[in-house]
Every structure is written in structure tokens, then in C-alpha cells.
């Protein structure tokens, strides 16, 4: 991250709000930039189901021209009884623009989605991520997340 971007992330006010349909192009583009995969249908389908149990939050920051620009987003869903698990808030995605990281935006998104899950009546939140993504895992752990009682298993289908 260049120093100008770092300074902007640390000093510019960040606004969190519920996502709107007109945020989707920027959300899809940021996700594609970070993951290398564009998943327009996936995001539009998730957005269509947004609500109390499927919070969709965006973080905005004022750009150099003063116009608001997407700084990050988080989306999750309360799921119940899959794999025998009692109701729990799943964080499906929590992404911050790489140029704006280290400014606390991810932590604000994390706190906000946790609050939405609390309001939806669940007492636990969960996520899943690549085992070798140590940086993202460190972020979630810094927010108190630990390995839970489940483990993911998979196999190649011949």
C-alpha cells in the first residue's frame, strides 16, 4: 500500500451502511480484484436474499474527488442445523480494498456484522477460509475467532 493510500485509510472518515443494489457493480469488481474471479450471479443472488438474517454491509470512504467510493463489504447469513449446527452467523465474505487496508475498516465491518448477527438472535459466528491464507486467518483470530468443533473434509470426484 502506498503511503498516500495508507494515510487516506487512517484519516478519511469511513461510513458503514446496508448495501444497496447500486453498490453491486463495485462489490463485484472489488471481489473480482481480490479473488481473481468475477461472480456476478452469485452476488446478485445473495443480494436478492438480503435481510435481517442475511446482512449485507458496505464501507464507504471519500475518494480524492470527494465522491464516496466502496472501501469494503461484508456479507453473511444465519444458518441453522446444517451439519447438526445450532443457529449460527456465517461470514461468507469480508473484503477491504487492498489499497485501504491497515486502516481499521475490516475491523469495523467485522464488528458491524457481529452486531447484526446478535440482533438476529444468534450467539456464535463462524467463517471458513483457505488454510494457507495466514493473513486473513490472523485477522479473524485477532477478533477472537478460534478453531471450532467442526472440520471440513473433501475429496476429488473421479
Amino acid at each position: 500500500m502506498d503511503s498516500a493510500a495508507e494515510s487516506r485509510a487512517e484519516t478519511a472518515p469511513v461510513t458503514l451502511r446496508d448495501g444497496r443494489e447500486d453498490d453491486l457493480p463495485a462489490v463485484i469488481a472489488l471481489d473480482a480484484r481480490v479473488t481473481g474471479l468475477e461472480k456476478e450471479r452469485y452476488w446478485r443472488e445473495l443480494y436478492s436474499r438480503r435481510g435481517k438474517e442475511l446482512p449485507f454491509l458496505v464501507a464507504e470512504i471519500a475518494g480524492p474527488d470527494g465522491a464516496a467510493r466502496l472501501a469494503g463489504f461484508s456479507i453473511g447469513e444465519v444458518r441453522a442445523w446444517e451439519f447438526g449446527s445450532p443457529p449460527c452467523g456465517w461470514v461468507f465474505a469480508l473484503t477491504v480494498d487492498p489499497e485501504l487496508r491497515l486502516g481499521g475498516i475490516g475491523s469495523r465491518l467485522m464488528d458491524a456484522i457481529a452486531e447484526r448477527f446478535r440482533e438476529a438472535g444468534v450467539k456464535r459466528m463462524r467463517t471458513m477460509l483457505a488454510r494457507d491464507n495466514h493473513l486473513l486467518m490472523a485477522f479473524f483470530r485477532s477478533h477472537g475467532m478460534m478453531a471450532g468443533p467442526y472440520i471440513e473434509l473433501e475429496k476429488e470426484l473421479d
Partner: peptide, 18 residues
Amino acid sequence: DAITEATLRSITLDTMFK
């Protein structure tokens, strides 16, 4: 070993303080 490594590489000293 891979699970152990992922755990140890993702817990910072700051997280340990918490």
C-alpha cells in the same frame, strides 16, 4: 502438520495478549 502450521502462523502476539 499443515493444520498445526496454519494455527501457529495465524496467531500473533497481539492475539495471544487477548
